[in-house]
Each structure stands twice: as C-alpha cells, then as structure tokens.
Design a protein around this nucleic acid. Structure first.
Lengths: 333, 333
DNA sequence: TTTCGGTATGACAGCGCTGTCATCTCCGTA
DNA sequence: TACGGAGATGACAGCGCTGTCATACCGAAA
C-alpha cells in the first residue's frame, strides 16, 4: 500500500486502466461492473490504499449517511441504552450518528438542531428537552425524516417513538392502589427540565386522584437524578415522617431510597414501600428488587432507526410507534 | 423566512446586493467585512432562512469540524461519562462527534475506523477494544490527530489520555495488603474482551505476588459486566467457600457482590470484604460505600478533546496525558 | 498633488466525487 | 444478415462552497 493519504479516484483509475467513474462504481458496490474489472479495480484500490472521500461523495451525490442524534443527557444509563440500540441498527445499514447533548437546555438544543442540520443529515433523532419555537420550526422544515423519541404523549413534528409516560405513571399507581396503599409520597429530581419524569408524576397523581388520594408529601431537588440524590431526599422525607409508599422519578432515585432504608434498618416494603420507573438491571439485582415499570430503551433506539431507514427507503411509516412498557412487580412495594 | 430548504449563498447574495463570497464571510464570521454590509447580509440571511451547507463547505475548504469517536460499549455509565465530557468540550469549540460503537469486537472496530475516516474527520478519539493490525495501520496513516483514551499503559499511535490501569489495580492491592488482608478472590466479566479490566487484575495480582500472595479463587464469566452478573458470581463463589476479600472487575460487579452479601445477611467488610474500580456514584451511595479507585471519566473526555483541539490549533501536545486516579477508601474493605 | 498601505469587496477556479446520458460491445433472434 | 436489447464503460458537467488573488477605494504621508 502507498503511504500517501492523498489518493484520489483518478490515481486508482489510472492504475486499474479504467475510468474514474468505474472505480467509483466499484467502491460503491454498484451492480453493472464486470467481475474481471471489479477484481482489477479492487487490486488497485488495495495497492494505492485509497480512502473514500465521503465529504466529496455526499456533496456531489446530494446524499449523506449521517443521522443527527440529539439527546438531553448521558448522566444515567437510560439514554446510553437508547443510543446503543440506535447506533447498532444504523451501523448495520451503513449510517453514522452525529451526536449532540442538549443538557436539558432549550437554547443549546436549538443551537444543536441548527448546526447538525447544516451537515445535511439523512435523518434526525431527537429526545427533546424543551423545544423552543425556533427549534420546532427548524425541525418542521428539515428536509429529512425527524423522529422524536422517548414519549408519545405529545404531538410530534414528524414521527414519535416511545411510550406514554403519562400511562407509565398511571399504570403503576393503579397497581399500587390495587395493593392497598393509601399514603403516598413523591421524590424527584429537577422536573422543570425533565418533562418526561413530570409526565409520569402527573399520570401517577391523576390515578391517585381518581381514587380520592393525593401525594401527602412531595420532595424535589434541582439537578440531575442520581442514587445519591435519591438517598438524600429519602432521608429528608423520612425525617419529616414518611408516607407509606414513595414514588420516585426513576430507578436511580429509588435505589437511593432503598439504600437509605437498608442503612436505617427499615423494612422494605413492610414499613416503607418504594416504586419507580425504568426497570434497570441495578434495581432488579438489588436486595429488594424494585417495583417499577420497565422501559424498553434499546427498542426505542432500534425502532427510531427503523423509522428513519424505512422512510429513506420510501416505505410507509406510522406517525407513532408505541414500544410499550411493562410493569415489574418487584418486591419493594 | 422563506419556506424553501434550498436556499444558496447566491440567493442571499442577490438579496443583500453583495457577492457570494461576502455572504460566505459573514456566515463564517470573518473579520474584514464592514459593519453595514454585515448587517445587510444578516438581514438577508434571516429573510431567506439560509441553512449553511457544511458538506459543501468542508469539502471545498478541505476542513471538517467532525471528530470520529469510537467506543467499545455504552452498557455501563463509564463510557457515557467520557462521551459527555468529550461532547461538552467539542461542542464549545464548534466540533461534533460522529459516533461508533465497536462492541469490543476487533473486526467491527476496524470497520468503524475505516468508515469514519472516510468522513475526513478533524480528529479521532478512540477507546480501543482490540486493535487489529489493519486498524493500527489505518490510525497511523490517519491525516489527523488520534487520541487513544482510557489507558496509558500501552504505546499509542499518536497520543494517549487516561490512567495506568495496571497501577490502578496495583494501588488498591497495596492498600488492601496494608489493611491486613491475606486471602483474596477475583470476580470479573469477560476479560478476553475488556483489556483494561484485565490490566487492573494483572496489576492487582502483581502486587499480591510481591507480598507472597495469589488469588485463592478466580471466577469469570463471559458477557458484559453488570450488577446481576456480579451478584451471581458472588453467590457462586460464596457457595464454594469465600475468600476474605473479593476484588471485582468494576463497581457494577462489586455492587452485585454487596447486594448478595446484604441479602445473605453477611457482614461487610467484617466477614466478606469487597473492592473494585470506578468510583461510581452508585457505589458511594450504597449502604456500605465501596472501597474502590475513582477514575476521572469526564476528565478523560475533556482532556482528549483538548488534545485534539490543541493539535488543530498548532499548539504543542504531549504524547501522554495521565488524568490520574484516586483511592476511595470506602467502607467495604 | 502624488504615492502608498490598509481595508473592503469581488472574480474565478476548483475541491473529488457522482448523476446523467452517450457509446460501445456482444448476443440472440427474426 | 440485420436488428434490438442488455450489459459494460466512459465523457462531461456540476454539486455549493471557499482559497487565492485581484481590484477598488480611502485617507494619510510625502
């Protein structure tokens, strides 16, 4: 192989005694090139160490195999799980994600959308934080498929893949009401930024209200969710006289609750019951497996990728994909 | 704003009564354009709803603001933490990561390097899984800075940012020897794939050997690390008569161990002591905070980004950046 | 007044590839 | 033998922008 990094189609073409376009066809795996020519070109490709220039190719061919992916956070395993599913499926089809993290910040989200659009991506997958008016316009005008992921409660610009966060909250509340609980507390992280956690809480609350109950105590703190925060807030709530059951914004927070209870020697679920959302491995491997709702994060990623790929292939796509959730009874409530 | 998505510089230029190149200069924030012209052009930009075409720009200008990022996994919080630090810093400088996940597979890793290189990235950040010969050649010839992250034990193609995984293992072993432990077990996930976990184990073992000890028991299982796996293997090891202390491949695994111990009512650290690596929030919020080694994952990401940015700015860069680790005494050993 | 340097702007070519259409060869069939 | 059609290959233009160099203009210095 040549050591140079500046090999063009022309050089390969000359070596293989064919035209540039033929080399281009071979590189792209086109059909109508004779086997002998393919072989000759591939040898020349090998010898020259040719590296395809996608910038030129995508520009000239007016196509890109990049997919813009915008997520609000990577601070717990939820979005990495989604991202993994997404990357897996995209990679298998020859696409690559360009990543942006909005940090749950509307302005940064808008800026990311704008700047990733400049790359003429073949599609956009976004877990919205808090779409600004301008961001919504940008997405609406985007000349490519747009998939909003995680929730299907709100009206998407183009397509949505996820679950109903409201129903997820409501469902576990029904289950807990069925178990006979009558005293409820809520512990959460910064819900002004995490709209989906807020939706679950709203769903939970509405189910309570249908049954004539309300949260007796609510404790929220700014910042991202974490096991530490969950533990702190639980300690705080316990010091004020705890409710019988605490619903947490997610599994990480609930694990903090379980840790606090274990450290205090409180019986879970007999004295204090815990419930939450996500169905993480962590919560299920815990001494007292969490009563929670399993979200299918990897599936959200793969389904989102499928929606994009389908659309690009000209197939029909549906506006909403509900990947569904699952109640995990656990042992903590 | 115009609704069309096909606005070119030419259209904006015509509206603003200037040449294309002047519009281009304004879009790119160039210096020598008079304030009045800038204003006129910006108005036209606004009116037309112009979206910069980076494909054309990068191609024409022979520069890209994309950085290839290749990670082996997203299955625990470690790499997402790194990725977050990386994205944060890159974004602040106007760069975007294009992501690939190798899944600890050498062939896929090679393929990812090759296909991301085709995008003419401005830099490459890679947490190598198991570099093939071809992959190494590709990286060596890459016409851009290359940062290998996570470990600094091996010889990098260009630059390395991370910690000495061997020293991380060795250091905690010294600490535990200092605490008087004399009976050791090891529990790990698939180390044939996770080279860095293997390096920590090697470091730990070499410290033991210096002191005349060896692992009395070693238990490993294929697959990725998880709390569940850690718990299962711990149960298995306990059923065979446990060592006094178990060193785990990482915090997730060790949390599984702690859960198993708690579930059995075993006293930690008095009957069974646990130690591991990563210093996750989870482990520190646990009922018995883990004795572990804190890795500075976010810093690895930001430092890697800095290396790339420095190099691109023509500044000096060092071949190795050791972000350092920190012993976290915890309470589990 | 003339000269000169600096600032603002524009003309032009070309980045490396691919879409499109044309051409050529080679068969099988009428 | 002539012809149509499929398969293989090539010529050519152009994707939308930016690097480079040229030009126009202006005020200050000689």
């Amino acid at each position: 192989m040549s050591a140079s990094s500046k090999v063009r189609l022309a050089e390969v073409a000359q070596l293989a005694q064919v035209s540039e376009i033929t080399v281009s066809r071979v590189v792209r795996g086109a059909a109508n090139v004779s086997p002998e020519t393919v072989q000759r070109v591939e040898k020349a490709l090998e010898q020259t160490g040719y590296v395809r220039n996608r910038l030129a190719g995508s520009f000239g061919g007016r196509t890109s195999n990049q997919i813009a992916v915008i997520l609000p956070s990577l601070s717990n395993i939820v979005f990495p799980d989604v991202l993994y599913g997404l990357e897996e499926r995209l990679d298998a089809s020859g696409y690559h994600p360009i990543l942006g993290i909005s940090n749950y910040d509307a302005e940064r989200e808008t800026r990311l959308i704008a700047s990733l659009l400049e790359w003429q991506p073949a599609g956009i997958v976004i877990a919205t934080a808090n779409l600004s008016q301008r961001a919504r316009i940008l997405l609406t005008r985007a000349p490519c498929p747009v998939v909003e992921i995680m929730e299907i409660d709100t009206d998407p610009v183009d397509m949505a893949v996820g679950i109903s966060q409201v129903q997820a909250g409501k469902s576990i509340a029904y289950y807990l009401l069925g178990r006979g609980y009558t005293s409820f507390g809520y512990i959460g992280h910064d819900l002004t930024r995490d709209r989906r956690a807020a939706a679950r809480r709203a769903g939970f609350r509405s189910a309570l209200q249908e049954a004539g109950f309300e949260f007796d105590q609510v404790l929220e703190a700014g910042g991202t969710s974490s096991v530490t925060l969950g533990r702190q807030l639980t300690a705080e709530m316990l010091s004020m006289g705890a409710p019988r059951l605490i619903y947490y914004s997610n599994d990480d927070m609930a694990m903090g609750g379980q840790f606090e209870a274990l450290a205090r020697g409180m019986a879970v679920p007999d004295t204090l019951a815990l419930a939450s959302f996500n169905g993480l491995d962590l919560g299920q491997a815990a001494p007292i497996p969490l009563t929670t709702v399993g979200s299918r994060r990897g599936e959200i990623g793969t389904a989102a990728a499928d929606q994009i790929l389908k659309r690009l292939a000209g197939e029909d796509t549906s506006r909403f994909i509900d990947v569904g959730f699952k109640l995990i009874p656990g042992a903590s409530a």
